[in-house]
Amino acid sequence: MIGVLSYLVFFLSVAAILAVAVLGLDLHWGNTGLFNGGVAAFFGMGAYVTILLGGSPQPGQFGGFGLIYPTALLGGILASGVLAWIVGVATLRLRHDYLAIATFGVAVAFETLARNAEWLTGGAKGLRGFERPLEATIGNPFLFNVCFLVFVVAVLAIVYVGLRRLIRSPYGRLLRAIREDETAAQALGKSPARIRLASFITGAMIIGTSGGLYVTFYAYVSPQDVSPILTFQIWAMLIVGGAGNNKGAVLGAFVVWAAWTASGWALARFAPVEMQLYTGTIQYILIGLVIVAMLLLRPQGLLPEKLLISQTGSGGTRQPAS
């Protein structure tokens, strides 16, 4: 019983951590119409910088500054924001698919750096030596995991509520106005480039938060954790849940993570031994199929975007934009 329960706590923790990243991506794609092809890079930036700042010193390894946890996490979040700023300044003035290409490139470059710069990132063996906050004080591992789950869910709730307030505010309307018709927004005296940049940086910092939480949970990060498949998983979560709807984003995170875990378990359990090597391959095909099938069959996702109409009595029949 305790085994099932502790697995459930583990599963919910990871799903909630990923849900934070999906919320960040939803701010990009769902609300501002920005294509982020490098979720893994912003996630990894949050994770790596958090462990570099908050970890204990390791021989022959940069970092391990042993800062107190909130400072380390904040550092990771800020680092993601800085990365987003650099990419955003270069690409946000240009046609939208340049951002897609550049962010995808950032993810490739980040993974390359993570694999090769051993002094900085530990190379393929990754970074260890992170003391999880309060772990020693709490003592009991199960109790610690429950407490951590509560902490992650609290962060998820804060991000969720914060985004909801942002989206319902005049600023949120402005974001959607830019997404729908940039020229019209410009004609009203708004500056789309600056606002898109702000939204891109905010979303990237939310994704960075997710990375920071992830490294706190595992107390370890390696290039495996920032491989492109993470980006595709987060996307699948958003597409399944419904872009532009934060409830959908969170729902999608739990649904897709459950499906991913279940498919991995089923393949390990039932697939013939010679196929075990190809478990990852089959799961990648499934993620690809989920993305394409959702876009073809139900592009609005499980929970479609609800358009917020600020003036009653007009435009009530508008269809959600695709």
Binding site: Y278, Y284, I287, G288, L295, S322
Partner: peptide, 25 residues
């Protein structure tokens, strides 16, 4: 025919994942 260019980019990633891994399989 139904959606914007961003959905096309998303779909192209999905297609790439499928082709690459089906070939590997």
């Amino acid at each position: 025919e139904t959606a914007g260019p961003l959905s096309m980019v998303f779909a192209s990633f999905g297609v790439a994942l499928i082709i690459r891994n089906v070939l590997a399989l």
